[in-house]
Nucleic acid binder design. Structure first.
Lengths: 166, 166
DNA sequence: TATTGTTATACTCTATAACTATA
DNA sequence: TATAGTTATAGAGTATAACAATA
């Protein structure tokens, strides 16, 4: 998580021109996402020690109990080797457990622990509050519009037919 | 830049539930941005060898000729020590030059080279085309609405009074 | 004293490849 | 043969701290 630095002391940096990027959707998307990460870091990560990625992982485990590490890796869109350390951390924190699968001894079934469920419930409240604060400048209707437009954007990426490999 | 892997072979991963994240703006913002990065990687990075960050840096240099490395660092929101390697790369590629400042011998003035200008013009065309493709599912009006809503979101982050340090 | 660019160093996140134990 | 989890290793990308030259 990058630390958020304040405004620069150099006032001659204030009026930088961004050229054609000002018209690019990707540019504004990136900036919006960076702003969202920052606010998450200021509020949730500082108080709960959980990054957006870790929070997402907890939500996926909580909402899909018993899923394997490989399944979690796909859900998080990272390699399964990259999942190991993170799952270790969540386990060491006592938030989740690796149950051995009764049917396949290669595989772990990931579950929340009772303290994990409790922690997630608390974090979830904070995240939802923070998310509302973040979009405080938008009306409820505008917020809904924005989410709807974003979904239509990124779904084009995930609606590739499953039998087609790139 | 992360490589984009195709759909998983495991079909049991298709229906993962995301719980309360489905209602969080930050979640959809992140997914939208990841999708945008991916398309950029598929198109621009593959053909031009330029990441979104490098492209942004070239645009800032091109549109603010003579700026210092420190100014560029502020514009990119990274530490000035992190800028050195990237500026080296752009210089080695012959896209920019470090001119010594006539008034301050500590400082470099960054400028595009003629080949750099040419390369950026070509990349910019590709980026704008790619950006249009990315939002092909939106009408022009919807695209404008989306950009407008995003601006209102992230500007709350940058409209902090300059004299207030966090 | 403060600032600019630089270097050394470390940390995080991620990927690739190879290994093991299962299937 | 293929899959699940793991390890070793490497590469981005970034930060912090300290330094020399200059202001």
């Amino acid at each position: 998580m990058r630390k958020h630095r304040g405004k620069p002391a150099n006032s001659d940096l204030a009026e930088l021109v961004h050229g054609s990027m000002a018209g690019e959707l990707g540019f504004h998307l990136r900036r919006g996402q960076i702003a969202a990460f920052r606010q998450f870091a200021r509020t949730i990560t500082t108080t709960e020690g959980v990054t957006p990625g870790l929070y997402g992982m907890l939500q996926v485990i909580a909402n899909n109990p018993g899923l394997s590490q490989s399944a979690l890796a796909v859900a998080m869109d990272v390699d399964r080797s990259s999942i190991v350390k993170v799952v270790n951390q969540l386990e060491e924190k006592g938030l989740i457990v690796r149950d051995t699968s009764p049917t396949d001894r290669r595989r772990y079934c990931l579950h929340m622990t009772p303290p994990g469920v409790q922690a997630l419930a608390r974090i979830e409240q904070a995240v939802m509050r923070q998310d509302q604060d973040f979009s405080a400048r938008l009306s409820d209707a505008e917020r809904g519009t924005l989410i709807g437009l974003l979904k239509r954007l990124y779904r084009q990426d995930s609606e590739t037919p499953a039998n087609v490999r790139e």
